[in-house]
Design a protein around this nucleic acid. Structure first.
Lengths: 339, 339
DNA sequence: TTGAAAGCGCTAACAG
DNA sequence: CTGTTAGCGCTTTCAA
């Protein structure tokens, strides 16, 4: 026989009190109005019955569902997404919140629909995540709900957001090379028009021009930021008369192509060529031989920060928006040697 | 001024009808009792006001929240998880459902807590996902809620589940090799005690012993199913007096190591050695040179199947449990050549 | 220190 | 064809 789950009424009856008293005893609300002996009786009854509150009913009353909406454009599809979700998830769960997920293709209409679907469910706040550090417009629908942007930001900084400190990460891996005595540092990148490309490229350019080198001579790009693109660009770069002694790659996948190009040209890494990169993808950077030194994208930390910040803002709806830069730690491996 | 969102009462008033009529007009319930002219008026009023139903209130009344719980043990952390989540997500969303996610470490107590947290939120059903095709016990808490297992199953088949057809996938890649005339097919695998290892290994063993070959001579394993393990095992295997003409790898990561070993030994792929593998990881199989032929784990399809099946079972709670095997399609690339 | 009662926004009998 | 009314299970006044 399917016994229905116990309700507050059942607990109250079992403890011989009213539902009001039971509610307050269970939630610790109502200040001192509950006698400690009464509270114990209620708690015992609840435990005895295996009582679990119906949060839907509670939510209707309190207007708090203890759910956060997580809207991701293509988030579940990308290899980084997991860590971002997990970071948000862990922080939320610690505070008694759960994540209600919607994945979209990034189409604005679809995102708007996703937000509406979440709002219908009365989520308390929204985490709006994109991939690869984009600059976006926040959909109008969202205005009535607290929101934090994850791995993206608005142009005007009017919405709280967290993005990786790409410049800091690039400076970090370049410093690794500089410390090993490298000056002629090449850059292999994608031609795709993404924020990450610009920041990493600009940072590198400043770095090498500071040595008085001609950046254009040390630069090669490919239409696509994947292995083959990295291979092609590296081939072009490494065949030039004065080849670089080190290469800073846009990302690990391109670095994989650089490794292949070096092998074909008979250059050993790191003996003849040092390589550093960005992203620190777990399926690539540590698996290459030698292990690849790479600046890590702090997805877990960004997710966690965003959720905590959102939670904080639920209680302080009028707090000023904040733009947060999350540091990108350097994963040091064996792809760098003295020049 | 923060105007509160319109409620059903507002729509009803604007349309000059009762909330009952408004509700039925909006939901299309109540058969023919709503006049078409009345319905239009209600719909127009709702659109005008931008009415969105409060699904918390609705859920309290109907006992249906249109949310599915997704419990994953370590799911967000693994590279496959995304596709599984996305498959479940898309199928759910198509039916007007959203996914409420909880990630766990796989610890049974924690999983139990996760299920309870989901049940408090009155989710309509639960998707219980593990990674890597495990055989598990279903937590007792779940008994009162419809559930479908994703990439795992119970020993007794008492719970509906979907797992990849590992045997079929292994037969598929072995057939690729056989069609190219290979007989001496080696196997490089992990020593980790997982279901996938056993099925892939057994299938391979049957295949080569059917040719009258000694499987032990063609077999090499490493403690860990990663690149270095694949490299070590392949080195041992390829240095034997009569080396295999092809290798079936436990997974793509080990295959990556096999590629490296072949390169070091001066063996070209696929000229001197054909290679096939399992998993078809997007970051590896297509990125290797030459592209790796691999049996794909159908994570998206499993997620989608599981969600649809769960949805179906919400309406037919007494349907018999089903064990579903999802085919593993072969991704053909350039790592196989005639023997 | 406690109980009675109202009500969150919606749906579904029931009555017309 | 439509309106009135009674809850869903909880929290929170208000009154004692």
């Amino acid at each position: 026989m399917a016994t229905r789950p116990p309700r507050l009424t059942d607990v109250a009856r079992a403890a011989g009190v009213s539902t009001a008293t039971a509610s307050m005893a269970l939630n610790g609300t109502g200040g001192n109005r509950i006698g400690s002996e009464t509270r114990d009786r209620v708690l015992a009854a609840a435990a005895e019955l295996g009582y679990r509150p119906n949060t839907v009913a509670r939510g209707l009353r309190t207007r708090r569902t203890h759910m956060l909406g997580f809207v991701g454009d293509n988030v579940a599809t990308t290899p980084f997404a997991g860590q971002m979700i997990r970071g948000a998830h862990d922080a939320a769960r610690e505070a008694g919140f759960l994540l209600l997920m919607v994945d979209t293709t990034g189409d604005p209409d679809e995102t708007g629909e996703a937000i509406a679907a979440l709002q219908e469910r009365q989520i308390d706040g929204i985490l709006l995540a994109t991939m690869y550090h984009q600059v976006i417009d926040v959909p109008a629908e969202i205005k009535s709900t607290p929101v934090v942007l994850l791995d993206s930001r608005t142009a005007d900084g009017s919405v709280t957001s967290v993005v990786p400190d790409e410049r800091g990460g690039a400076l970090g891996v370049l410093a690794e090379l500089a410390a090993a005595g490298h000056r002629r540092i090449g850059h292999v990148t994608t031609a795709e028009d993404v924020e990450a490309r610009h920041i990493r490229l600009t940072t590198w350019r400043e770095h090498v021009t500071a040595y008085g080198l001609d950046a254009d001579e040390l630069f090669a790009e490919s239409p696509e930021g994947r292995t083959h693109g990295g291979y092609d660009a590296a081939m072009r770069l490494l065949r030039r008369p004065e080849r670089p002694t080190a290469i800073f790659c846009f990302n690990d996948r391109m670095a994989m192509g650089v490794y292949r190009a070096a092998a074909e040209l008979g250059l050993s890494i790191p003996g003849d060529l040092s390589v550093v990169s960005y992203d620190d993808q777990e399926l690539i950077a540590p698996e290459l031989a030698p292990g690849l030194t790479s600046a890590a994208l702090p997805h877990y930390e960004m997710g966690s920060w965003a959720a905590k910040e959102l939670l904080r803002r639920l209680d302080e709806p009028d707090a000023e928006p904040v733009q947060h830069l999350m540091p990108c730690p350097i994963a040091r491996r064996d792809s760098v040697a003295p020049a």
